[in-house]
Design a binder for these strands. Structure first.
Lengths: 338, 338
DNA sequence: AACCAGCGCTGAACCGGATAAGTACCGAGA
DNA sequence: TCTCGGTACTTATCCGGTTCAGCGCTGGTT
C-alpha cells in the first residue's frame, strides 16, 4: 500500500511536479482551473505531504520536545504534569505542531535526548521543567542554540525565555491568611530542596513567618510522595510544640497528612489546619475538603507553548509571568482551638 | 549555527560522501584507518544524521503515535495514563523510538491525527486506548494499513493486535472475596458504560453476584470523576437496602466514596467495605487504606509498546494477555457488622 | 510591426543521506 | 605475465518534496 506522491498527481493531471507543488501550496504560478484539477486529484487519491521530504528542504520539524526527568511512580501520582501536557498540546495542536515526549532517568539522559532531537532536526525547540539550583541544563541548551522555554523562575533561566508564576506571593498570602485566623505555629512540608521553586517557596515562607511573628515555623523536605508526606506529618504532630497549621507542597502529601492527623486523633481543622499547593480534584473529594493554592495549570503549559512557538518563529521572546496561585479556602482551615 | 552534514565530514576527511556514509553506518567498504578518521571528525564537529534525510530513504520514522481522547481535567486526575505512558516510553527509549503524543477532543479528531501522522510518515504505528463498543476507529485504522496495537479486550480489537488483562477474573475474585467476608449486598460504581472494559466488568460483576447469591447487587455508571463517585455513593448509602460493600472503577471515586461514607457516619470497614480498581499511592494515603485491584500499569504500557515494535518490524504479532489485576487487601474491607 | 510584461507552465537543481554500480589498485595464483 | 578476486574507494541515482531559471504564448503598448 504505497502512499501517493506528487509525482503520482502530476502524472494523473498531465503536468509537472513543480506545477503540482505550486497548486498544493497555494502559490501563484498555476491557473485556477489547473489548481482545482490538481486539488481534486490529490483529495481523491488521499495524498499527504511526506513530512520528511518537506523537512529536508529546511522546513520546520513541526514538533517540540519535552523530556521529563522524574521516576514513573512520581509522575503518575501528581496530576500536575498531565495537566501541563494537555495545556501545551492545546496550543500546539492549533498550529499542527506535535509533542515529542520522553520520560528519562536523569538530567544527563535528558540532555542527550535534546541533543539528539535537535541534531536530527526532529524538533524545533523544547520546554525545560523542574529547574534545579545551578542547573547544568541551562548553559548546555544555551550552547546548543535550540529555542527553549523554561517553566520556572527567571533567576535560574539564564538567557532562556522563562514562563513562571510568583510562588513567593502565594506563600505570603497563605501565611497571612493563617496568621489572620490566629495561627502562630505554622509548618511547611516541602518538595525536593534542590528544585528552584522549592527554594523560592522555602525562602518566602521563612521570610513571611519571621515578618508576621510566626515563631514556631519549620520546613521539612520530602520527595513529594504520600509516604514521605505522611512521615513528615507524623514527626510534626508528635513534636512537643505541635504546629496548628501545615502547608504542603502538593496535593498527595496534603491528603496523606490529613489521614495521619485523623489517625492520631488530631481534628482537622479544629486542631490542625491544612493547606495544599496545587489544588486538584483530589482536594475536593476528601473530608474535610482541603484549602488549596489554585492555579490554572493547563494555561501555564499553554503559555509556555505559546512562547516557544513565538521563539521558533523568531518573534516576541520576552519572559512571561503567569498569574500567581490563589488561595481557595475550604473546610481544612479554621482558627485553631485554644 | 548550521548543523553539520556528511558532506562537511567528507570534505574534511578528503573522501566522498559515500565513503562517509559507509563509515558511519558500520558498513564494509572503508578501511579501518579511514573509518576511525571519519568517526573522529564526525564526533568532533558534533554530527548527527538528519532524521528527515534518513526517513526520505524509506527508513522508519522511529516514532509511534498516541492520541488520547479524554478532556484534560479527567486526564490529570487518574495516574493511569501517565503510568501507561512512562511504561511505553521505557520500551521505546531502549529502541530510540520517540513517542508522539496528542490530546484530542473526540474520536474524529483522533482519527484525523492518525491519518495525518501516517500519511506524513511521521509515525511507524500507533497505540489505541479506551476502546468503545462498536468503536469506529478499529475499522478505520484497519483500512489505513497502519501497524496498531490496541490496549483493550480482543473482542473489540478486530484484526488489530490486542494487549489486555482479564478484568473479568479480577471482578470475580473481588466478589468472591467480599462474599467470603460475609457480604450479601454489594454494589459497583462503574465508569462510562460505552467503554468496552466497563461493559466487561459490568457483565462479570452481574454474573458473579448472581452466581454467588449476592441478591442486592447494583451498578451505577459515572464519568470517573470524584464528584460523580461521591454522588453515586450518596445515592447507594441513602437507599433503604444499603449495600455493605462498594467496588469502585477507579481510585479517585473510591476515595470520594470513602469521604462520603465518613460524612454520613457510615463506618469503614465496619458498616461499609470499599474496593478500588487500580491501586495507586492514593489508596495508601487515606484512612483506612483502601483495598485495591493492583496491576503493574507501566508494564501494561511497556507490553503494548513491545508488541507494536514487533509489529512494525514485521515480526511476532500475536495478542498478549497481561496478568490479571490482583486483589490487595487493606483496611477498607472487613466482614460486615451484623 | 516590434517589443515587453506577465501568465502558466516545464525542467532541473537541491536538501542530506543511503546505496547500487563502477573503477583503480594490490596481491596471489596459474 | 596475465588474470582473477577482493579491497577501498568514487560516482551517480534515488527518496519526495521545494524552488528557481527559463520558455512559449498572449495581449497590450508604442
Amino acid at each position: 500500500m504505497r502512499r501517493p506522491t506528487i509525482a503520482d498527481i502530476a502524472r494523473q493531471a498531465g503536468v509537472s511536479k513543480g506545477a503540482v507543488s505550486y497548486a498544493l501550496n497555494g502559490q501563484r504560478g498555476v491557473s485556477e482551473a489547473t489548481r482545482a484539477r490538481i486539488l481534486a486529484i490529490a483529495d481523491e487519491i488521499g495524498w499527504r505531504p511526506n513530512f520528511a521530504a518537506r523537512a529536508l528542504n529546511g522546513a520546520r520539524a513541526h514538533a517540540v520536545g519535552l523530556a521529563l526527568c522524574r521516576p514513573a511512580r512520581f509522575l503518575g501520582v501528581e496530576p500536575f504534569f498531565m495537566e501541563v501536557i494537555s495545556g501545551i498540546e492545546a496550543e500546539l495542536a492549533a498550529r499542527s505542531y506535535a509533542l515529542l515526549l520522553q520520560v528519562v532517568a536523569d538530567h544527563e539522559a535528558e540532555m542527550s535526548i535534546y541533543r539528539r532531537w535537535w541534531g536530527e532536526h526532529r524538533v524545533d525547540g523544547a520546554i525545560l521543567v523542574d529547574l534545579h539550583l545551578d542547573d547544568p541544563r541551562v548553559p548546555q541548551v544555551e550552547a546548543m542554540g535550540m529555542p527553549v522555554v523554561v517553566m520556572g523562575h527567571p533567576s535560574a533561566a539564564g538567557s532562556l525565555v522563562p514562563v513562571w508564576s510568583d510562588d513567593g506571593a502565594a506563600v505570603r498570602e497563605t501565611v497571612e491568611y493563617l496568621v489572620a485566623l490566629g495561627h502562630r505555629r505554622v509548618c511547611r512540608v516541602a518538595g525536593m530542596p534542590r528544585l528552584v521553586h522549592t527554594a523560592i517557596r522555602d525562602r518566602a515562607f521563612s521570610d513571611a513567618c519571621t515578618q508576621m511573628g510566626v515563631t514556631g515555623h519549620q520546613i521539612i523536605h520530602t520527595d513529594y510522595t504520600g509516604e514521605e508526606g505522611a512521615r513528615a506529618t507524623r514527626r510534626l504532630l508528635s513534636s512537643p510544640e505541635r504546629p496548628t497549621a501545615i502547608v504542603y507542597d502538593n496535593d498527595i502529601m496534603a491528603v496523606a497528612g490529613l489521614s495521619v492527623a485523623q489517625e492520631l486523633r488530631v481534628r482537622v481543622p479544629a486542631d490542625l489546619s491544612i493547606v495544599a499547593w496545587d489544588d486538584s480534584p483530589l482536594c475536593q473529594v476528601v473530608r474535610p475538603p482541603l484549602t488549596g493554592l489554585t492555579r490554572d495549570i493547563p494555561a501555564y503549559g499553554a503559555h509556555a507553548a505559546q512562547r516557544l512557538l513565538a521563539l521558533i518563529d523568531g518573534g516576541d521572546t520576552g519572559p512571561l509571568e503567569d498569574e500567581a496561585p490563589r488561595l481557595t479556602a475550604r473546610g481544612s482551615t479554621a482558627p485553631p482551638d485554644a
